[in-house]
Design a protein around this nucleic acid. Sequence first.
DNA 1: GTTCTGACA
DNA 2: TGTCAGTA
Length: 133
Amino acid sequence: MSDDDRPATSGFMHIGEVAARTELSLRSLRHWEEVGLLPPSGRTEGGFRLYTEDDVAKVLVIRRMKPLGFTLEAMKDVLHDVEALHDPATTAPDREAAAARLAVIREDAVGRRAKLARQVEMADEFIGLLADP
DNA sequence: GTTCTGACA
DNA sequence: TGTCAGTA
């Protein structure tokens, strides 16, 4: 690794640090860039991906949606809408539309969470079934 | 030693 | 998604 590939000085992180901090695989992070879900904020001259704290925040959003079974496309929309709401330049009607979409996703998430909870119940019952009497 | 791209038992 | 190859 050459000096221009060392991110420590500028607040940027390499993919390895992001993976470690988010408990996600390098493979997933690379894949998500490939499909346009999470492009790194930058690249070194050597081609190394550079991630910011904001990027990590997005990764965490994805990590939270993952167990709910949302599609990468849905995650992409969420990231875009959340970003739009953060951007002061976003117009009122655009905010309204983004908020509406996120509300739909939230309802969906509530349902998916319930289904997940039922699965955990099944797991607990199974574990109880094998418990020492 | 870490990351990159591409490919596939 | 994991993992291995062949590089830089």
